[in-house]
Design a protein around this nucleic acid. Structure first.
Lengths: 230, 230
DNA sequence: AGCTGTGAAAAAGTTCACAGCA
DNA sequence: TGCTGTGAACTTTTTCACAGCT
């Protein structure tokens, strides 16, 4: 119980376990083994046990884990017992999609404000929330006690928006803009970058193509050999 | 040059380097040091050098890396010299946002098909592409030689869509549905899960709150102590 | 017998620190 | 002098393997 440091990699898997466990609970399951849980999440059973052991020893040897109990423990650990106030800055296609995303509000995330710099959007209502001008960011973050800010603006505006969110007192940022952001110590920053994900997939596509072409050690000139440097 | 295995973690950073390098090139920079590049991407300079060394030895000691040359090398490594045909399945808010996303088409990704199961959407045109019925998935993937499929349907439909994409011959999938997918060997799968990202942020929010409350070893009962198991 | 919890081993990833070249 | 390239140390993460409880 003292000084529980849960490794980052484990933290990132807790939401996945939780989702499966909720489904299992709804399906009426009482207990689940690390093996079954691992299968459902697509990981190794030993990893499941290690991850869950960081939360404490909640399983029963010979039986497995109590589903309902585990749901409660993980929810609490993830802070999902509380309601986190969030805001979305930037209501382009992506921002709108996020605002309407059900899973957003589903578990403890409350959309407290929407912000955009387009006067045509300010004052309209999206997902039952009135859109405010981005200049109001600091004020609204303070007033609503917003903890998590979501950035869905173009890359060029992202740092300014981040600065404003932090100035207002946000302590977590989820950034969808393709930009590297600087935030003060003590602010958590996560990034989702669609173009990067596609490029990673392209890398492995490319490699398969090269490997197929290169079977048996054929000459790959023009396919992967480096061009001599300038 | 023989058997170049680039670690996954490095591959995931190549697109970030590329983005910065393209900006630098547009800004007229001739060369860049590992230090400057590291700063711009937000990583350690040694990591930059290690990562780039996997591509070959493209730097010049005492000088740095030739920006243009590095852009070419990384682009080639990421398979961005080719045009990858992609499709998006599911044209809800997120699917539409993805279809309109500029960065999508920007670098070598060509939107060859859009699919949805809603008869009202089939036949309409989105982002200059006519929407087809999801039953056409296999056929369209084959016909257009689509390599990468993007899944933006609800979780319940995601596995079926994945199966169809794979049946058609897709070799990479980017999944936005909150579901764990099963794909055949040889198909790359990446996942973007908005709810998970928020929950990870909530975990660290929660922990900060607990740490603040627990300064000096105060009693945390009711905040983090476990409820006794059933 | 079945399944958890966990030390210990293995693997992957990061950072250091410095030789070596421009 | 300045900066790359890289072996080696270190850290984190994953996996194994088995003792220990039910």
């Amino acid at each position: 119980m003292i000084s529980r440091r849960i490794p980052e990699a484990s933290v990132a898997r807790l939401p996945l376990y939780l989702r499966v466990l909720v489904d299992l609970a709804e399906g009426g399951a009482q207990t689940v083994s690390s093996h079954a849980l691992a299968e459902a999440v697509g990981v190794n059973p030993a990893k499941v046990r290690k991850d869950l052991s960081y939360l404490g020893s909640y399983g029963t040897r010979g039986v497995g884990y109590d589903v309902e109990y585990l749901v409660r423990q993980i929810s609490r650990e993830l802070g999902l017992s509380e309601e986190w106030a969030t805001c979305i800055v930037g209501l382009g296609n992506l921002g709108l999609a996020l605002a309407h995303y059900g899973g957003f509000v589903e578990r403890g995330f409350h959309l407290a404000a929407l912000l955009d710099d387009d006067p045509a959007k300010v004052g309209t209502t999206v997902a039952d929330v009135e859109v405010s001008h981005v200049d109001e960011t600091e004020r609204l973050v303070k007033e609503h006690g917003i903890a998590i800010g979501v950035i869905a603006v173009p890359a060029t505006a992202a740092q300014e928006v981040a600065d404003r969110l932090c100035a207002g007192g946000v302590t977590s940022i989820l950034n969808f803009a393709p930009a590297v952001l600087q935030v003060p110590d003590g602010v958590s920053l996560r990034k989702v970058d669609l173009a990067v994900e596609l490029q990673i997939l392209a890398f492995y596509e490319q490699r398969r193509a090269v490997e197929a072409a290169g079977l048996g050690g054929a000459d790959l000139a023009g396919v992967l050999d480096p061009i001599p440097p300038p």
